[in-house]
């Protein structure tokens, strides 16, 4: 179990860059907890504190009963940390990297092979290749293997899927789901809102603060506004037009659609007619279920 209370962290000469403004949350055993937010929201600072790499200015974090500040030596034994950037030795081979980290933790690949078998098997054919020559997805698998080789109780993964192709991303989340079944606590951060659904619970973070913590469904259920999608051929012009409409509270481009939140009084047909009158003939307006991203937008607006 992870219990984080009121973490503060600031940087800069006058501590003027505030990365975390009192973050609190708990993660239960056997849970995948996602910290979701844009770049610069404070995800990496939070994870580096939990990995005992930097000290918080104030607040506490207890991981499976160990304080990250006082018991940092124990923390390093029980966590597996994977930084956002690929941080293994590029000039060592796949196998050498894995063996290196196993040895530093006083174990061997053979002893804990069962933990990484599923993942490592996929890169084992390339075990003599230098880590620097691996593809993005394979690097990810190697980094995860190295983070798991000492049988950690808690996995801390900082943006593990950034810069990885969609297929590898899906594979990666499947691997996390299997690890979760083995009883690991997994703390993962991402900037991709669509990955939220793969977590048991998520926290939305913005500018160093958690703005919501719940299950993905709970976050969606809490969404109170009226959400529609608008589809049409001249999207950027439509977006411009929608933003000028006084009954529309917000409008964002979402792939091939525009998501809008509107005042209770407005009807979909009414808006459609309004747009057709403005010469957008092929336009279509219909209500939709909100996604986590819609919730994030609503919460930060």
């Amino acid at each position: 179990m992870i219990e984080v209370k009121n973490l503060y962290k600031s940087y800069g000469r006058a501590d003027n860059i505030i990365a975390l403004k009192g973050v609190s949350f708990t993660v239960n055993d056997g849970e995948i907890f996602g910290v979701i937010g844009p770049d610069g929201a404070g995800k990496t600072s939070l994870f580096r504190i939990l990995a005992s790499l930097i000290l918080p200015d104030s607040g506490s974090a207890i991981m499976n009963g160990h304080d990250v500040v006082k018991d940092y030596k124990t923390i390093r034994q029980i966590i597996g940390y994977m930084p956002g950037r690929f941080s293994l030795y590029q000039d060592l081979s796949v196998e050498e990297n894995l063996k290196f980290f196993a040895t530093l933790f006083g174990t061997t690949i053979e002893e804990n092979y069962h933990l990484i078998k599923d993942i490592y098997r996929q890169i084992e054919p390339f075990k003599n290749r230098r880590a620097g020559a691996l593809s993005g997805g394979m690097k990810q698998k190697l980094a995860l293997s190295c983070a798991l080789i000492h049988k950690p109780e808690i996995l801390i993964l900082d943006e593990p899927t950034t810069g990885v192709d969609p297929v590898s991303r899906k594979e990666f989340w499947d691997m996390l789901a299997r690890l979760k079944e083995q009883g690991l606590i997994i703390l993962v951060s991402t900037a991709y809102m669509d990955e939220a659904g793969r977590c048991d619970r998520i926290a939305l973070i913005k500018e160093g603060e958690f703005i919501a913590t719940d299950t993905p469904q709970g976050i969606i259920d809490n969404y109170s506004g009226v959400l529609w999608a608008v589809q049409g051929s001249r999207m950027s012009v439509i977006l411009h037009e929608l933003r000028a409409h006084h009954l529309i509270k917000s409008s964002f481009a979402f792939g091939d659609k525009i998501h809008i939140t509107v005042d209770e009084g407005l009807q979909a047909e009414e808006l459609k007619q309004y747009l057709i009158n403005k010469n957008f003939e092929d336009v279509n307006v219909f209500p939709i279920e909100p996604t986590v991203e819609d919730c994030f937008m609503a919460l930060t607006n």
């Binding site: 990995a51 005992s52 790499l53 030596k73 390093r76 034994q77 966590i79 940390y81 930084p83 950037r85 690929f86 941080s87 293994l88 030795y89 590029q90 980290f101 530093l104 933790f105 006083g106 190295c146």
Partner: peptide, 13 residues
């Protein structure tokens, strides 16, 4: 610069 120090620092070395 290569970030490998992060991985070393979380080991008990």
């Amino acid at each position: 610069e290569s970030g490998t120090i992060n991985q070393i620092n979380v080991t008990p070395v």
